[in-house]
Nucleic acid binder design. Structure first.
Lengths: 148, 148
DNA sequence: TATTGTTATACTCTATAACTATA
DNA sequence: TATAGTTATAGAGTATAACAATA
């Protein structure tokens, strides 16, 4: 394993696994998968969002999006509606129960992230965000511009 | 999604996904899963490592470790051996073919990581590693010390 | 003909329980 | 009895192809 310690990708992987282990544990207690959480947050911020648009934003394939939304609907957290302008489409909105559940979940997740944030000073936090963005953007730019 | 942008955990998740999307593409061309790669690197550095010890290090459960090693064995990359001192145990070693495959794979992965590393200056790289470690260690410490 | 979403299906990863053979 | 590994199995998450309804 030591040969991998020097890899930035590996370090980031380890950190991400640790952070998400925490988050998954919280999600479990909230009775909600990470995918469900992400979807509910997005629907809350974009009421009436099309199922396909949400799936694209989440990088979830359409058939899998159907299953995810089915679960949310059965749990009474989300309702589907067909807009009259395009009867193929499906618009997603939170139910009152969905609003309540996601508000509680977000509070929990934000508290967790604040705890992580407090491991660093404000300056360090800003530096870390900046460095992560630099790497992230660089990878994207390389992917686009590179013939490979 | 915008509500999540400020979360360190979320940023790291995004970056990790981007880096590993690259790595997975390379793995695919090398005909090797990330788990297989990690195992082969570890066996190379620790010839004769016990299957259970490797599984613990990789955070892979025993039944899943069995399947992973089965695949490596069938591919002719790894051999299992039972030490005389404990006939329950299994020691893992690379075959010559395994040595060859993992050497090529590591070269490819290291080249990729160097490319990522070159997106930052030496000082920034050191800073990023330090900050990632700080957060990583802090999370671990909190997990251990917290009654939750 | 292209699209939005659904169904059916399969493959990978992961997780647990029950089993064997040793210790 | 405890441990190392295996088997069987089940659950997520993700991928593709074929389909229905609509545009």
């Amino acid at each position: 394993m030591s040969a991998m310690d020097s890899h930035i990708g590996y370090r980031i992987r380890i950190l991400q696994l640790r952070i998400f282990k925490d988050i998954y544990e919280r999600m479990e207690r909230l009775g909600m998968s990470l995918g469900a959480y992400t979807a509910l947050v997005a629907i809350r911020e974009n009421p009436g969002v099309r199922q396909g648009v949400l799936g694209a934003a989440m990088h979830v394939k359409r058939p899998n999006m159907t299953k995810l939304v089915n679960g949310l609907e059965k749990a009474g957290l989300v309702v589907r509606a067909t807009p009259s302008c395009d009867k193929r489409a499906v618009e997603l909105r939170l139910t009152p129960q969905g609003e309540q559940r996601i508000a509680a979940a977000m509070e929990d997740v934000c508290a967790h992230d604040s705890e992580i944030g407090q491991l660093l000073s404000a300056v360090e936090r800003r530096d870390l965000m900046r460095l992560l963005d630099r790497v992230s953007d660089g990878i994207e730019a390389r992917r686009r511009g590179d013939a490979r």
